[in-house]
């Protein structure tokens, strides 16, 4: 699997290359700004683009805009955004366009190499990886409506679902059985008036859309 890295800090770029290589990726290009990133993705057509949000020249939301464009122009390239701080607004914009093959994580998550590589693989497989802090922000924004009806345990499950975890992953994180998780999920979907879907993935997307929907 090939990857392109966009990160303006040279020091961190070296670390990211090592981590991805350890995770079985082959780094095709390392660039330092959004323009070079788009050119590199066009040239190499990688399976993964690992992108810093804040890059030259504006040091604002360049990475978010580049990620949206990559998902639009090259749907086969999954994008994982990295940032010093995560912002629910950027996540909502990212998910509004297309919520599969997208990840948005705090930079410090890279420091837990195993979990980070697992999250990246999930995204490359068409899944989603949202940082727990984004999920916390999204939940915070939504606490005056149907989410109030959820029990605390159901909220935990929803949060983990929104991070992009599988049923087994949720069961492990909460130390409960798979069937208990399935029961919670069914209850959540019912309370949030979401249609029951077949695949885990579609449920996650539904939840994410619900969380990331623009507020009226």
């Amino acid at each position: 699997m090939r990857a392109v890295i966009a990160e303006d800090s040279v020091l961190l770029r070296v670390g990211l290359v090592k981590v991805l290589e350890m995770g079985g990726f082959q780094v095709a290009a390392e660039v330092g700004d959004a323009e070079a990133l788009l050119a590199a993705v066009e040239e190499h057509r990688p399976e993964l683009a690992l992108v810093d949000v804040r890059m030259p020249p504006g040091f604002g939301d360049e990475g978010v805009r580049a990620a949206t464009e990559i998902r639009r122009r090259w749907p086969r390239t999954a994008v994982v955004l990295l940032s010093q701080y995560v912002e629910e607004r950027y996540a909502a914009e990212l998910l509004a366009a297309n919520s599969s093959g997208v990840g948005y994580l705090l930079k410090q998550r890279v420091a837990d190499v195993g979990e980070f590589v697992a999250a990246v693989r999930r995204v490359v497989g068409g899944g989603t990886a949202l940082d727990p802090q984004v999920v916390a922000q999204l939940l915070l924004r939504r606490d005056s409506d149907p989410l109030d009806r959820l029990t605390p345990r159901e909220r935990d499950v929803l949060g983990l679902m929104a991070e992009g975890r599988s049923n087994a992953g949720i069961a492990e994180a909460l130390s409960v059985s798979d069937s208990a998780v399935a029961k919670h999920i069914n209850s959540i979907l019912a309370k949030l008036d979401l249609p029951v879907a077949d695949a885990d993935h579609r449920r996650v997307l539904a939840v994410l859309r619900f969380l990331g929907a623009p507020r009226a």
Binding site: L11, L12, G15, V19, Q84, K107, Q108, A111, V113
Partner: peptide, 10 residues
């Protein structure tokens, strides 16, 4: 700091 933590994890 992030780079340091990444290297320690590696």
């Amino acid at each position: 700091l992030v780079s340091l933590a990444v290297n320690l994890s590696l």
